[in-house]
Simulated assay, not measured.
Amino acid sequence: MNMKENRTWNHHVVKEGNKSLVMEMIKNESPISRAAVASQTGLNKGTVSSLVADLMDDHLIYESGPGVSSGGRRPVMLLFNGSAGHSIGIDLGVNYLLGILTDLEGNIIEKKELNFKNHSYEEIEKKLFEVIDLLTSIAPPSPHGIIGIGVGVPGIVDTNGSILLAPNLNWKNVNLKTVIETKYRLPVIIENEANAGAYGEKQFGVGQESENIIYVSAGIGIGVGLILNGSLYKGANGFSGELGHMTIQVDGPVCRCGNQGCWELYASEQALIAKAAQLNLPVPAKQELELTTLISLAENGNQEIITLFEEVGDLLGVGINNIINTFNPQQVIIGNRLASSNRWLEESLNKRVSKQALWFQQNDLQISFSELSTLSAALGVSAFSIENFISVRMQPKSFV
């Protein structure tokens, strides 16, 4: 690279950084004036005005009416344009598929959920396309249209978005990212659903005030997402958080992952259903024994089922206690489908943690159940897609 090319490259890098800085300020602080952006970023007013013009040309921000005056003429205010495009977030579970359409601020415009059982990869792929097609068709008109698709999956995903192993789906080495990108010609992000759920809670849920969060995704299996010092921790190759497969019973039953005595065999939706199947329950012959059925029985006062929920809550506490003693978090959030059973899980879970967690680990510790419930992971991957889109738009126009 010669000196002239180097100067040009450095100019692009500086402009991209400044544009990102201005964009982030407006997105987080809107409505905000140009003068306030300049003051808070340390950039001169001419630079801010030029970058604001670029962002307005790209429909990412817009002007509103005058703000409050500090003595002179009332300033024109700048706002982030959340309607400039839309993102699709998919939570691909073992026995369900939840898709959401959001604007660029994460507001849910539409959602669609499908339930299934023991489907092949081909059958799930077909349902995935159905949901994406539906959400795309009902997206309101916008300057940028659908800006990306994010998919959270219950398995090990590498940093390139390849699904190395999803034991509860019986998937191994599945490149779903390439499949979706080829079909829709859109940027696609594939992420572990617990990582996505942790990020969803940090951005939009009960974790917004905490910097160190353990998110426990309790569905058919158990996944764990880690927010450490305010950032999602994924490990060297993206494989962190597989704590559903930590051993809590030596020589216990064999898990689909190949190990024995994994936590998810005792404290998950599949564990609850397996235990309930051993009881003589008043379930109609044609009705599937599933979580919604058990919740209905518990709501109607079936003490056997309530006791099973309490046992699962206790065993959730066993694993959570181990995680607390390892990471010393501010907050533990229980999400995914079992979070809707919190009224029967909470007491036994908290009792186990207070009994066994080291006393100094419990200082300032908050244990919460997700208010987003099954939406956390879908919101998380939608947010990843939005951030990727905005990052690309921050590049100089000749690079976009």
Rank of each mutant, 00 (worst) to 15 (best):
V312A: 01
V312H: 00
G313I: 02
D314Q: 11
D314K: 05
D314E: 12
D314V: 00
D314M: 07
L315F: 13
L316D: 00
G317N: 12
G317A: 12
G317H: 13
G317V: 07
V318E: 09
G319I: 04
G319Q: 08
G319R: 03
G319E: 11
I320W: 10
I320H: 01
I320F: 14
N321Y: 14
N321K: 11
N322D: 13
N322V: 08
N322Y: 14
I323G: 01
I323L: 15
I323H: 01
I323C: 12
I324Y: 11
I324V: 15
I324P: 07
I324H: 10
N325K: 03
N325S: 13
N325M: 11
T326V: 08
T326N: 02
T326Y: 11
F327P: 05
F327G: 09
F327H: 07
F327A: 06
N328M: 10
N328H: 14
N328D: 15
N328A: 15
P329A: 13
P329K: 06
P329M: 12
P329Y: 11
P329Q: 11
P329L: 13
Q330A: 10
Q330D: 14
Q330R: 01
Q330I: 05
Q331I: 07
Q331D: 08
Q331W: 09
Q331N: 02
V332A: 07
V332F: 07
V332R: 02
V332W: 08
V332L: 06
V332N: 04
V332H: 06
V332I: 15
I333V: 15
I333H: 03
I334V: 15
I334D: 08
I334L: 14
G335T: 06
G335D: 10
G335N: 01
N336L: 04
N336H: 09
N336C: 14
N336P: 02
R337I: 03
R337S: 04
R337E: 06
R337Q: 06
L338F: 08
L338I: 01
L338P: 03
L338T: 04
A339D: 03
A339E: 01
A339F: 04
S340G: 04
S340Y: 02
S341D: 03
S341L: 04
S341G: 10
N342P: 00
N342H: 07
N342F: 03
N342I: 04
N342A: 04
R343W: 00
R343N: 12
R343P: 02
R343D: 09
R343E: 15
R343Y: 03
W344E: 05
W344L: 00
W344N: 06
W344C: 00
W344R: 00
L345C: 13
E346H: 13
E346Y: 08
E346W: 05
E346R: 12
E347H: 12
E347N: 13
E347W: 01
E347Q: 11
S348V: 09
S348M: 12
S348G: 10
S348E: 11
